[in-house]
Nucleic acid binder design. Structure first.
Lengths: 190, 190
DNA sequence: TGTTCCATGTAATAAGTTACATGATTTA
DNA sequence: TAAATCATGTAACTTATTACATGGAACA
């Protein structure tokens, strides 16, 4: 599980590295991220290995673009990756590692501040995802269950994203309440 | 956000690389993973940089163990990491990347199979987490809100783990139903 | 007597981040 | 005229994975 297969997957339509980065920012960021400085060399490498091919095209605005598309070999590689079944057991969620060690901070105030920052982030993220869904649903009457395959399955990840961020936001609020309650108890018994 | 700070965090108690790997398997796996072949060199490096120190001790059973503990410098580094606030926007969830590209598989049967595999995995994981919680709660009457700090915050991550895996399991089932419904519709209109 | 657990490491390779470098066009 | 967007890359470094290497003790 690495950037390689994501690039192959994203190239259902011919795109440039720059376009790909935008798709990361719009939708993939929920479960993966990559910098341009990783994307460009990786595209080049995939072309060297015969999984992609590219050509330069003129841009409407700005410099020339290098547009990549999948080869037959790239198609096979992508399919093989999906056929191996779900890639599990390697999730990475940095802020949960931090919460796990939160007792190392010096004060309850600092811990509450940490959790409130996390809550605010989740609240914004949920807003973003919900308005993305609303926009999509307004723009396409086929949303969600009559969408063509290419969008139907991508919509699944938006659906789960919303459910998860919602659950995480609730958890933040519950956790903050639990800490505050604990602080009050400690003050009372002191 | 990398292994470094997780090792510092986990060394609230002196432990060996082997012990640390076990803690990954027991609880941290929900949000991070690391191999022994990454853990051992990283511990060595942290000692070289003065964030940890180690000594060899005899083991009750098996070869000698090298046990690491945090130095004052390591403590400061850990605290600074937590004080920077939640590390967000770098989540990695490989199977969601796969779902995003699921239309690339050749048949609905293959897509349903993928989602069922994912569902089974989530069901097992939920079982594991729920029985971990049950065991903990049976073993310690302070569970969860009267636990000492070192466990109180770690319990937060178990709580969120359960909520999330539960939501993901529901989503798997809903998604399978949506695909099956779509397949029936397609057959009817054909 | 075979498998799992205990226990630690190295070497080669792959993947990812941060910093550097350039320059046109569009929008405020 | 300043900032944002469009567009592509390289270099140096850090982080992580896979494969290799060893060997005793406990368990089934």
């Amino acid at each position: 599980m690495s950037l390689k297969h994501i690039l192959l997957g994203i190239l259902r339509e011919p795109q440039s590295g720059y376009d790909i980065k935008n798709e990361f920012n719009r939708s993939l960021k929920n479960f993966w991220n990559a910098n341009l400085s990783q994307i460009y060399p990786e595209l080049k490498k995939l072309e060297t290995n015969g999984l992609l091919r590219s050509k330069q095209v003129e841009s409407a605005s700005g410099p020339n673009r290098r547009v990549y598309r999948r080869t037959a070999k790239g198609n096979r590689e992508l399919k093989a990756w999906l056929q191996k079944g779900p890639s599990v057991g390697e999730e990475r969620i940095g802020y949960l590692a931090q919460v796990y060690f939160l007792s190392e901070l010096d004060s309850d105030a600092e811990r509450i501040e940490f959790m409130k920052e996390l809550r605010d982030h989740m609240a914004h993220w949920l807003d973003y995802l919900e308005s993305a869904e609303k926009g999509w649903s307004n723009d396409d009457p086929r949303y969600p269950d009559a969408l063509p395959d290419e969008f139907f399955y991508a919509q699944f990840t938006l659906d789960l994203g919303i459910r998860r961020v919602r659950a995480t936001l609730e958890w933040c609020n519950d956790s903050i309440a639990r800490i505050e309650h604990r602080v009050r108890d400690a003050a009372r018994s002191a």
